[in-house]
Computed example of a mutant assay.
Amino acid sequence: MAKQLSVVVTGAHGFVGSALCEHLLRSGHINLTTLSRRQSGFQQAQHVQTELSASTDLSAVLHSKDVVIHTAARVHMMQDNAADPLAEFRLMNTQVTLNLARQAATAGVRRFIFLSSIKVMGEANLAGVPFRSDQTPNPADPYAQSKYEAEQGLLQISRETEMEVVIIRPPLIYGEGVKANFQQLIRLMQKQIPLPFKAVNNSRSLLALPNLISLIERCIEHPAAANQVFLASDNHDLSTADLMAMIATAGGKKAWLIPFPPALLHGLGRMFGKKAAIDRLCGDLRIDISPTMALLQWQPPFKPQAVISQAVVAELSK
Results as ranks from 00 to 15, higher is better:
3 K>R: 14
4 Q>I: 11
6 S>L: 01
8 V>E: 06
12 A>I: 01
13 H>L: 00
19 A>R: 01
20 L>Y: 05
24 L>H: 09
25 L>Y: 08
27 S>V: 00
29 H>G: 06
33 T>G: 07
34 T>G: 12
35 L>E: 01
36 S>D: 13
40 S>T: 12
40 S>E: 03
42 F>M: 10
46 Q>I: 08
47 H>G: 09
49 Q>S: 09
53 S>F: 05
55 S>F: 03
60 A>I: 10
63 H>F: 13
63 H>S: 15
74 R>C: 08
75 V>T: 12
77 M>A: 15
79 Q>G: 03
82 A>L: 03
82 A>F: 07
85 P>T: 06
85 P>L: 05
86 L>W: 02
93 N>Y: 04
95 Q>S: 10
96 V>R: 00
97 T>P: 07
97 T>N: 03
98 L>W: 08
98 L>S: 10
99 N>K: 02
100 L>V: 07
102 R>G: 13
103 Q>D: 03
105 A>W: 06
109 V>R: 03
112 F>L: 06
114 F>P: 01
114 F>K: 05
115 L>P: 04
121 M>C: 10
121 M>N: 12
126 L>P: 01
127 A>M: 13
129 V>M: 14
129 V>I: 15
132 R>C: 14
134 D>N: 09
139 P>N: 05
141 D>S: 01
142 P>N: 06
142 P>C: 09
145 Q>G: 09
146 S>P: 09
150 A>C: 09
151 E>S: 11
152 Q>P: 04
152 Q>L: 15
153 G>Q: 11
158 S>A: 15
164 E>D: 15
168 I>G: 10
168 I>D: 12
169 R>Q: 12
170 P>D: 11
171 P>N: 08
173 I>L: 09
174 Y>S: 04
175 G>E: 02
175 G>Y: 00
178 V>Q: 02
178 V>F: 00
181 N>H: 07
183 Q>H: 15
188 L>M: 13
188 L>H: 02
188 L>R: 09
191 K>D: 05
193 I>D: 11
197 F>C: 01
198 K>V: 03
200 V>P: 02
200 V>S: 03
207 L>F: 02
216 I>F: 08
220 I>L: 15
220 I>N: 11
227 N>W: 03
230 F>G: 08
230 F>Y: 15
231 L>E: 06
234 D>F: 11
238 L>M: 15
243 L>T: 08
244 M>R: 00
247 I>F: 04
249 T>L: 05
251 G>S: 07
252 G>V: 01
253 K>D: 06
253 K>S: 07
253 K>W: 02
257 L>E: 09
262 P>F: 06
265 L>N: 06
267 G>S: 07
268 L>H: 01
270 R>L: 10
272 F>N: 05
272 F>M: 04
274 K>H: 05
275 K>I: 00
282 C>E: 07
283 G>Y: 07
285 L>V: 10
287 I>N: 03
287 I>W: 00
288 D>V: 04
293 M>G: 02
303 K>M: 12
308 I>G: 01
310 Q>V: 00
312 V>S: 04
312 V>F: 02
